[in-house]
Nucleic acid binder design. Sequence first.
DNA 1: TCAATAGTTTAGAATTATTATAATGTATAT
DNA 2: ATATACATTATAATAATTCTAAACTATTGA
Lengths: 145, 145
Amino acid sequence: MPKNCNFIGKLREVGLRPTKQRVKMCEVLFNREKTFHFTINDLVKMISEQMNQKISLATVYNTVHVFEKKGYVKEISIDSHKSYFDTNTSAHHHFFDEDTHQLIDIDKKDIDKINIKKNIPGKKINSIEVLVRVASDNQNQKKFN
Amino acid sequence: MPKNCNFIGKLREVGLRPTKQRVKMCEVLFNREKTFHFTINDLVKMISEQMNQKISLATVYNTVHVFEKKGYVKEISIDSHKSYFDTNTSAHHHFFDEDTHQLIDIDKKDIDKINIKKNIPGKKINSIEVLVRVASDNQNQKKFN
DNA sequence: TCAATAGTTTAGAATTATTATAATGTATAT
DNA sequence: ATATACATTATAATAATTCTAAACTATTGA
Ligand SMILES: [Mn+2]
Ligand SMILES: [Mn+2]
Ligand SMILES: [Zn+2]
Ligand SMILES: [Zn+2]
């Protein structure tokens, strides 16, 4: 979903009723310049901050998964103990900061196109994604000890 | 852990008591030619098949995590709903078959070295891993409908 | 040898994330 | 407006994982 704010229309287009919960979630997720990464808990916090009425946790789960099915968000697997989602739904690469548990997009131009020289018979490639795990450089830290 | 079977010695080397549960888990995990991928449930099944005595699920969890800490296994994140482990502890690339939920190693020679053209200040790169999601090719299937 | 000790296993309880249920509420079409 | 299908909600249920505390065992060294 792009810059404009016609979330009611956007929801209708894909056959979803524009309930106030869904519209609010659209605002929180898509009414911003840049895409971003979030967990369900992040989202619940963001919504309850911006909303007068409360929203049920189940609704957030449901709606995120509905949005996932419609291609508005996608799930990112970096940690089997927590679900991360991304409003950038294209196949793309990430840094994962193991100190802060933050995901950061890697610009396509910062990694050369990846060529897989072998394939699996009868299978097609759905996506190719790189995960770069980073952590604070202890070499640097040592200087200050 | 390599080809030989001196798991008692291997465990002692890292300060772990070679209990029969741990030795059995070593046999199941490391007494084989090739590395492999497993879930906790896979492992419990394998152990209970090969063992006369039962092993507690908590022990399997504990021991896998102890082995992870000691660098004998590593956790692979492909699916935030399930924990996969790998007896190949080096940074390496995978196919993930979305039909069968099978992980398959990609040989280093089948992907060119990945060069990250940008870095994050104060952070060092711990690993660079590629995940290639594959699924059955519906183009092929159509022929037989 | 054989206790003393530290470390380990275990069953079961607790916790956490997530999903299901079923009653209530709401959007939409007529 | 009304009927209907769809959505939301609180709450219960489930599943994966971790915690607890009691029972057990490997190791140490007298
Ligand atoms: Mn999910
Ligand atoms: Mn883990
Ligand atoms: Zn992203
Ligand atoms: Zn592997």
